[in-house]
Design a protein around this nucleic acid. Structure first.
Length: 354
DNA sequence: AATACGGGGGT
DNA sequence: ACCCCAGTATT
């Protein structure tokens, strides 16, 4: 079984695999790294355009390291998991400062980069430097758990250890790049999460899950998701042509992205209720304002929460004191990175209401 | 060892 | 609704 697995996979890759991606076969570690960061927990189709935009904007790691954070976040806007962006920029600067602009070329040194964990280090080490490190991503978990009928939960510590060891054992050291590419493409194209293509699978005759009719039950995950609801009221405050925004810094979603004045409530609230809240009163103390209207409700589904947002258009005639906020002309809002809910709102041009 | 972190696509 | 995606950092 084990003896069959790797050669059969490589043969499939050679003869049947027609998957094509901009970074495939790439040898420049910078480009490989960039693609891997973008693709963490992200579908190839979703990351594709981002990769091309980043390569065009920052052709070398030095270009990226020299870039202003705002610009990098703006390019990342909409991709999610924004800590990746922060860490990516920090890693680029690490490479320039610590490694003198030369991409590190050992597994440990690669993993010392911000935002680079075991998977990404193995991917870069193998693709760029042909080092014998097996990748372990969602595809590999799925392929191995099915082919070998392993029901150890993949989100457990023992599961990670077990699959890491097995993946490493199956790796042909002389062909680590091809093998890693093969198993991930195979998982994406043949051994898919839903409706795997077992009928045309070249490994099917030795696949234990298929023999035991367990394909739909593997891999096993244990943890269940808890989703909470949150209610955001954004005060879009206008003075002359300026809108007030700030960067999110708290330990919460959308860190380092921008937003308007936020009032969060534990349940839906109407405007009088918001106006009665201490946070609202202290924001507008000694300030007369107008409320010019409200937007439609926006809903955004995240992994651990559902966010309902509404935008409230406000204006003042005297320049407001807004510590922590920056006044931005409407036409310059597109220089800042915002969460999806806000870019959706801005796209609707409801700002023209005032 | 558990949990949080986005947004999109599929069923 | 729920699951998954070329996972990692933090608690």
């Amino acid at each position: 079984m084990k003896q069959f697995f790797t050669p059969a996979l490589l043969e499939w890759n050679q003869n049947e695999n027609s998957r094509s991606m901009p970074w495939k076969g790439e040898k420049d570690p910078y480009r490989i790294w960039l693609s891997e960061i973008i693709l963490q927990q992200t579908r190839v189709e979703q990351g594709w355009a981002y990769y091309e935009n980043f390569i065009q904007a920052y052709p070398t790691v030095k270009d990226l390291a020299a870039a202003p954070e705002e610009a990098v976040f703006r390019l990342w806007q909409g991709l999610g998991y924004y800590a990746r962006c922060k860490n990516m920029l920090a890693a680029a600067r690490q490479i320039v400062d610590q490694f003198h602009g030369h991409f590190p070329n050992t597994y440990d040194a690669i993993q010392s980069l911000k935002g680079v964990g075991p998977y990404t280090a193995a991917a870069i080490a193998s693709f760029a430097f042909n080092l014998p490190h097996a990748v372990l991503d969602g595809n590999v978990f799925r392929v191995l758990s099915r082919y070998f009928d392993i029901d150890t939960p993949i989100d457990s510590t023992t599961g990670k250890k077990q699959f890491t060891a097995l993946a490493q054992e199956l790796l042909p050291h002389a062909q680590s790049a091809a093998y890693n590419q093969s198993i991930m493409d195979f998982g994406a194209v043949i051994c898919k999460p839903q409706q795997p293509a077992c009928s045309i699978c070249p490994l099917s005759k030795k696949c234990k899950a298929l023999q035991l009719n367990l394909v739909g039950l593997l891999p096993v995950k244990t943890k269940k998701l808890v989703i909470k609801k949150r209610y955001f009221y954004y005060l879009v405050l206008q003075y002359k042509d300026n809108i007030y925004i700030r960067k999110r810094t708290e330990n919460d979603i959308w860190q380092n992205l921008h937003e308007f004045i936020l009032i969060e409530t534990p349940q839906p609230a109407d405007i009088p209720t918001l106006q009665a809240m201490p946070v609202f009163k202290s924001t507008f103390v000694d300030m007369s304002y107008n409320i010019n209207g409200t937007s439609a409700a926006f809903k955004q589904q995240l992994t651990h929460q559902t966010i309902y947002s509404q935008f409230i258009f406000m204006s003042v005639t005297k320049q407001p004191e807004m510590p922590g906020y920056i006044a931005v002309p409407r036409t310059q809002l597109d220089g800042f990175a915002f969460p999806k809910t806000i870019t959706d709102f801005l796209k609707k041009r409801e700002l023209s209401l005032f």
